[in-house]
Amino acid sequence: MDFSDAFLNATVLQKYAPSILSGVWVTLYLSAIIVVAGTALGLILACIRACGWKAVNFVIIVYADILRALPPLVLILIAYFGLPGVGVLWSSNLVLFIVLTLILAAFAEEIFWAGITSVGKGQWEASRSTGLGFAQTLFWVVLPQGVRMGLPPLTNRAIAVTKMTALGSVIGVPDILNQATTAQSFSGNASPLTLAALAYVALFLPFVLLARWLETRFAWKRT
């Protein structure tokens, strides 16, 4: 058996391409809704933190720290195998979506919070002195600057978390990797995994490039 036969067997590729393509859609839509929901939740948490209520902030910080510390697979398995025990029956897709959204939100909250605190006190004071309220100042003056600072790390983190959708194959989410490993075991050939790798590259490389581009241009000259 030569190399191309082991990794790029044309017959196998042809046979399993449709199922891997169906996995691409699953990975793609899960990734999309995880990024949107995780970023939004992280932004909301960072804004709440900006209000400065001590008890609430404590909860947010504990949440962010724990979710950033735990290996994602542990959370996924706990949620998938543990929740039915308390009467919560979620599909594997829903479990994966919720767990990864919560993880991305934890990172996004920290990134947005860092952005918010990087905006100087003078910006708040200038805005408040012209009659803008707290929320208006946060929204129109502080967030545009803080979010912009956070975009490159956020893009990197979003890529990292959405790539974790591959962990869903462990609990039966029919994503790219799951389709590929199934095909691999049926065919006894690694070509579907090659195809999966190519699919991941096609899916994520544009975002990696976007992150790179953001990194080069995110900083405008500070006054």
Binding site: G122, Q123, A126, S127, T130, L132, Q136, W220
Partner: peptide, 25 residues
């Protein structure tokens, strides 16, 4: 109020700096 360190909003142009409070406040 005018500050020693200007405190202009760096993400807005001059017109945006002046008009923000006119619009939002």
């Amino acid at each position: 109020m005018v500050f020693q360190s200007f405190n202009l909003y760096p993400h807005l142009d001059a017109l945006g700096n002046v008009s923000l409070a006119l619009r939002k406040s």
